[in-house]
């Protein structure tokens, strides 16, 4: 065991559930699958290529760090946490990203955000989101070129072509990069708002899809399905996702009711961008989230509201990552002040 403690396993209880850290991580990865499959189907192979490169990178850095830190590689490398971090990070990076961006991201998440803070269980910040924030600030251009939905794109890259692009940034002849990418709905809104155009005729644009962004709305429904399944499996509690989405919905509804030409409707907030993924999969990262029932509500409300604030008034189109990082800093404080009443304490 990693901690130097004098206690040996000789006292009660003498039974243990089959649940383990790796089974928890595995279940979360399974829950991501519906969303991922829809994402690949709607946006092309480069989504999968992104995931694969990031996972390989993350596993390499995990192995390296375990070796350097003298930890049992066999137990920790396959606990699933590095894979989960990598998958979440790769979903936050636009498809058609160059390999070095993905590897840099996995380096930052695993080496800096995770292991330099003490490894699994000790990280102060969500590793995937910390890496995403670093990439977004350092490479704003690469981080904002999102793929066009398959229906819209003039050309569909095959799997090999996607790999080729990721590794060598070579596209098939006569295909321009611009033909494959477009702004996301949140990007679009940001541009419109900052150029002073009213948002009233947003519906006309095909970018909106049905309610919250062409393609993305379906992907998010996929993540929603997986997230609800996680709650059903009791891997995550309902507190954080509900609080995140509630805060986002309420604050966007109020502002939309006041001024619909500057603020977008709550559907775009909820089903567009990374709200669903964030609420169910990122904000619920146990290590960095609050762990008391009331604390989880406060933590979730904070993330929801900050996300809305950053999207509406901040410098970035989406704000989930920054919101999660900011509330992660507040977690110890929240936990301290939300200790539940013990049995018999209130009497």
């Amino acid at each position: 065991m990693s901690d130097n403690n004098p206690i040996v396993l000789t006292s009660s209880p003498f039974i243990q559930s089959s649940c383990s850290v790796s089974s928890v991580m595995r279940t979360v990865i399974y829950a991501l699958l519906p969303g991922i499959l829809l994402y690949i189907g709607l946006f092309g192979w480069s989504v999968l290529v992104n995931i694969l490169i990031t996972v390989v990178g993350a596993m390499f850095f995990e192995w390296l760090m375990l070796l350097l830190r003298n930890r049992p590689v066999r137990i920790y490398l396959f606990d699933g946490s590095a894979i989960l971090t990598a998958v979440l990070l790769s979903l936050a990076i636009p498809p058609l990203a160059p390999w070095w961006l993905l590897i840099l991201g996995s380096f930052f998440s695993i080496v800096v955000a995770k292991h330099l803070y003490g490894g699994i269980g000790y990280n102060t910040f969500n590793p995937a989101m910390a890496a995403y924030a670093v990439l977004l600030i350092s490479f704003p251009l690469e981080m904002s070129m999102w793929s066009m939905p398959v229906d819209e794109a003039k050309y569909l890259l095959s799997f090999t072509e996607s790999v080729q692009y990721a590794l060598f940034q070579v596209l098939p002849q006569n295909i321009k990069f611009d033909a494959l990418t477009s702004a996301t709905v949140l990007d679009h809104i940001r541009t419109e708002v900052s150029s002073g155009k009213p948002l009233d005729n947003l519906g006309v644009s095909s970018i909106l899809g049905y309610v919250a962004g062409q393609g993305f709305e379906w992907v998010n429904l996929g993540f929603l399905t997986g997230g609800l399944w996680l709650i059903y499996k009791k891997i995550i509690s309902w507190h954080i996702p509900l609080a995140v989405l509630a805060a986002l919905a309420v604050s966007s509804l109020i502002s939309y009711a006041i001024n619909p030409s500057v603020y977008v409707n709550p559907f775009i907030h909820l089903l567009g961008g990374a709200s669903i993924l964030g609420a169910f999969f990122i904000a619920t990262d146990p290590v960095t989230a609050s762990t008391t029932p009331l604390g989880r509500i406060i933590y979730g409300l904070g993330i929801g509201f900050l996300t809305f604030a950053i999207r509406s008034w901040g410098g970035y189109p989406d704000g989930i990552a920054f919101a999660v990082l900011l509330m992660g800093m507040a977690t110890p404080l929240i936990d301290y002040y939300t200790v539940p009443n013990a049995y018999g304490e209130r009497v």
Partner: peptide, 12 residues
């Protein structure tokens, strides 16, 4: 049962 992992604060 020696495979004790660090606490991940899952709250179970």
């Amino acid at each position: 049962e020696a495979n004790v992992m660090p606490c991940i604060r899952c709250g179970s």
